[in-house]
């Protein structure tokens, strides 16, 4: 009972935070510096790890596909397989998971610290709503940066797959055929679906992290607990949303 109450409370809190933050959207042009800073922290500094991860995901996909398709001499399909799985599923989900681990945790820690050390209270007494300067720029930043991260993850993953497919002894698939496979089987719609998914995941990861951070009460110990909570909720949310968003997108 208390658990259900807790979940509902979180759910409502997240929604209210979202509405309150976007109510301050008109103030965004005045905070463009803050927006740039958040874009930098959320997008730019996350890029290297997204690049490394997606490169290896693409590689391992090609390796597995090559190994499995060897039996039926269907190695021409490696490109299609790697291309589609990255575009439709792995690039958005893995980027979002990285985001939860790297950015979500940082945001919840920062906001929890601000809350615990009364910085948030100070903002309130200054008549500066925390949603306006702490949440809104981050939400807009992730909306801007997530497509960039995801498309990069796609392309770098494809490249990783191409390199493996060409150079591994038992595959040795010509890059041209690999990319032709991608070109023939991956439609822009697949990429677009992936970008939409990533956008939704990224948005919720940041929103939940902000919410959990701002809800923190108590001392330093609660800061740690908040970070854990933010990451766990984000991960669950990504995978649950993944199912629903994917099936919703299939209907359009």
């Amino acid at each position: 009972m208390k658990q259900i109450n807790n979940i509902l409370e979180h759910f409502g809190g997240v929604l209210i935070l979202c509405v309150r933050s976007f109510a301050y959207l008109p103030s965004l042009p005045l905070q463009w510096r803050r927006l740039i800073e958040q874009c930098f922290l959320i997008g730019y500094t996350t890029f290297p790890i997204v690049a490394i991860l997606s490169f290896f995901i693409g590689s391992v996909l090609a390796l597995q596909a090559g190994y499995s398709l060897q039996a039926v001499a269907g190695q021409d399909f490696i490109g299609a397989l790697v291309g589609l799985s990255l575009a439709r599923e792995l690039a958005p989900v893995m980027t979002a998971i990285l985001l939860a681990g790297r950015v979500g945790s940082a945001i919840s820690a920062e906001l929890a610290t601000m809350k615990v050390y009364q910085e948030v209270d100070a903002l309130v007494t200054m008549n500066i709503p925390p949603e306006r300067i702490l949440v809104l720029p981050r939400l807009v930043a992730i909306l801007l940066m997530m497509p960039v991260l995801t498309i990069s993850a796609n392309l770098i993953g494809w490249l990783g797959g191409a390199i493996i497919a060409q150079n591994i002894e038992f595959i040795q698939l010509d890059q041209r055929i690999y990319f032709q496979g991608i070109q023939n089987f991956v439609k822009f719609r697949d990429i677009l679906d992936g970008l939409i998914k990533a956008e939704i995941f990224g948005f919720f990861v940041i929103l939940v992290s902000c919410h959990v951070g701002l809800r923190t009460t108590g001392g330093p110990r609660e800061i740690g607990a908040s970070v854990t909570r933010a990451v766990v909720i984000s991960l669950i949310l990504i995978l649950v949303l993944d199912y629903f968003v994917t099936s919703a997108l299939m209907k359009f």
């Binding site: 960039v148 991260l149 498309i151 990069s152 822009f188 970008l195």
Partner: peptide, 17 residues
Amino acid sequence: FFLLGLALIWVVYQSLG
């Protein structure tokens, strides 16, 4: 970084489209 992302999306659109 942002422009690069837009460019990449455009390139992919062109290639696959």
